[in-house]
C-alpha cells in the first residue's frame, strides 16, 4: 500500500485496545471486521502513536521510542514495515494531509 510522508495516519474507527502488559502484548478488537488481533510491543507502540498526525511525525516519535529502549538499535525500515502490517490488518487508516494539499495548490501555477 503506497504511503506519502505527509499522509495523516489514524487508528481505525471503533478499534478497542486492551493492553495485556503482563504478556508484553496488546489485544486489538476491530468490530467492523470482527477480528481480534494480538499485537506485540512494537506494533502496540506504533498503533498508539497513530493519532491522526502525519506519517513523518509518527515515524520520528516511533524511532525515538525504540532508540530509548535498551538493546540493539531498531532495524532499518521497522517503522514502514510495521505500518504496512497494521494497514494490511485494517487497524490504521490514512488520509491526505489537508495542509500539505494547500501547499501543493499554492505552489502550482494557475
Amino acid at each position: 500500500m503506497p504511503f506519502s510522508p505527509t499522509d495523516c495516519v489514524s487508528a481505525a474507527r471503533g478499534l478497542r485496545l486492551r493492553p495485556v502488559p503482563e504478556m508484553g502484548t496488546c489485544l486489538a478488537y476491530d468490530p467492523a471486521r470482527a477480528r481480534l488481533h494480538t499485537l506485540n510491543a512494537t506494533s502496540w507502540l506504533l498503533l498508539t502513536l497513530c493519532d491522526g498526525r502525519p506519517r513523518a511525525a509518527i515515524a520520528a516519535e516511533f524511532n525515538d521510542a525504540l532508540r530509548s529502549l535498551p538493546g540493539p538499535a531498531p532495524e532499518q525500515g521497522a517503522f514502514s514495515r510495521g505500518l504496512e502490517q497494521l494497514a494490511a490488518l485494517g487497524l490504521v487508516t490514512t488520509a491526505a494531509n489537508p495542509h500539505a494539499s494547500m501547499q501543493t495548490r499554492k505552489d502550482t501555477p494557475p
Binding site: G14, R16, Y29, P31, A34, R35, L36
Partner: peptide, 12 residues
C-alpha cells in the same frame, strides 16, 4: 439482540 449489543465492544 444481546449479541448485537455486545459485538461493538467485544469479539464474539
Amino acid at each position: 439482540d444481546l449479541l448485537e449489543a455486545v459485538a461493538p465492544r467485544m469479539m464474539t
